[in-house]
Amino acid sequence: MTLLTILLMAVITFTTRYLFIHPRLPVRLGAKMAKLLSFSAPAVLTAIWVPIIFIQQGQLSISLHNPYLIAATLAIVAAAKGKSIYLTMFVGLITFVLSQYILSL
């Protein structure tokens, strides 16, 4: 039963990725639609990471007791200044581990 579920899940994830690049699908994109879609990367990726930072156990958490918020703030500064993906990840992860540790004392 679990095997069947996993197989059907695979069909779904592949379909959502592949469907709109299938040539025979009768979809034509105009210039306006293409412009709109050019904003999809910042829009979707932001809608993924922001809730991870601000929502803890289903509750909005905007305080200095939220290690996600402290670490994300520093990571954003690093990303804006440094532009190096490794530096941003390093700053974010170190700050996250440290603030988690300090807050748990």
């Binding site: 930072i53 990571a75 993906i85 974010g92």
Partner: peptide, 16 residues
């Protein structure tokens, strides 16, 4: 809090 690794990656990708 392992999901923070996902968040920081996307921060690094989006902000620049």
């Amino acid at each position: 809090g392992l999901d923070f690794a996902i968040a920081v990656t996307f921060i690094a990708l989006v902000i620049p």
